[in-house]
């Protein structure tokens, strides 16, 4: 059995990734939903998954100085490339925010005053929700390496799908175009980019397509709230057509999306007969058919 992994991403934040992922995850019975927006995971708010499994994620390391051993020689300052070590009033101090965790200072310190501590506050959760299984990650504030946490969430999602005989994995991705986005789309069957008809939306879409095209993935676009600026929506559609990327649907602005969220439901659960739900259903069918 082959899994079908569909990743929903968007360069720009707030275009409606989670709304659309939630709808896709409730259009057919029994899916695995992976919330890979580990920096701001939100889908658990709608689906209240059980926590059958919780794993600690070590996101990296930070250097700390043992003041009893440090001679304040300042040699580590010369080696640090992240400007994370300063001398303030004759005392050598590490700026935790800037430390990248490379461990070089700890290695070169002749009196072994610097040690590395793990950053281990981030978590991966796995469990069940009303329409199947759900996996999500939560990156602790200020920590990095979210790309690796995304890898772990996706691996768990695949294992869960295999163990439970589930074919479809819906992935809600993070915004931006950096490492966590690359981890989200690497090796998936389908990438759906959600955009909105604004100048920012078009600009971010271009950068996002530039990233996804490096992976030679089947990419399609959804224009959300298209009626807020129909001219811009057309411009985006023309741009996508010129790259042979299909705009699979254009969704109107509708308050029902917010009402669904307030009721802790996906829009297709809350208002199955609304125009937006019907359009999402058709779009999902189209994506599924490209794969089979």
């Amino acid at each position: 059995m082959n899994n079908m992994e569909i990743a929903v991403i968007s360069g720009k934040g707030g275009t409606g990734k989670s709304t659309i992922s939630a709808a896709f995850a409730t259009l057919q019975p029994n899916v695995v939903l992976a919330d890979c927006d580990v920096d701001a995971a939100n889908l658990y708010l709608l689906f209240h998954p059980t926590h059958e499994k919780e794993e600690v994620f070590v996101s990296g390391f930070k250097a700390i100085i043992n003041k009893d051993l440090c001679t304040n020689c300042g040699e580590c300052i010369n080696y640090c490339r992240f400007a994370a070590i300063d001398e303030i009033n004759g005392e050598v101090l590490i700026n935790e925010t800037s430390c990248d965790g490379c461990k070089l200072c700890s290695r070169i310190c002749t009196v072994e005053a610097i040690s590395m501590v793990q950053e281990d506050k981030s978590r991966m959760y796995s469990g069940s929700f009303r329409n199947g299984k759900m996996v999500y990650g939560r990156l602790s504030p200020g920590e990095e390496n979210s790309g690796r946490l995304v890898d772990i969430v996706r691996e768990e999602a695949k294992n869960t799908a295999r163990a439970n005989g589930i074919e479809t994995i819906i992935i809600d991705g993070p915004p931006g175009i950096g490492c966590p986005v690359i981890s989200t789309i690497t090796g998936v069957n389908q990438v759906v980019i959600v955009t909105e008809p604004t100048l920012s939306g078009l600009h971010d879409l271009k950068r996002t397509i530039e990233v996804s095209s490096k992976f030679k993935l089947t990419t399609s676009v959804i224009i959300n709230k298209f009626d807020l600026n129909a001219d811009m929506a057309n411009e985006i559609e023309t741009y996508c057509n010129s790259l042979h990327i299909s705009v699979i649907t254009k969704l109107p602005f509708d308050r029902v999306v917010v009402d669904a969220m307030l009721n802790c439901q996906s829009v297709v659960e809350f208002a199955p007969h609304s125009e937006i739900s019907i359009l999402l259903g058709k779009a999902f069918l189209q994506i599924s058919n490209i794969n089979s």
């Binding site: 934040g13 920096d39 939100n42 925010t97 990156l139 920590e143 915004p175």
Partner: peptide, 29 residues
């Protein structure tokens, strides 16, 4: 966006932070 490293690096130098939100469950969370 977010609260990870890029956000921390940005706000670390600020005297005051303005948080922009929307009145929805996702926004509040």
């Amino acid at each position: 966006p977010g609260t990870s490293c890029p956000f921390i690096q940005t706000v670390a130098t600020a005297d005051y932070v303005v948080l922009v939100t929307e009145p929805t469950p996702f926004g509040l969370s």
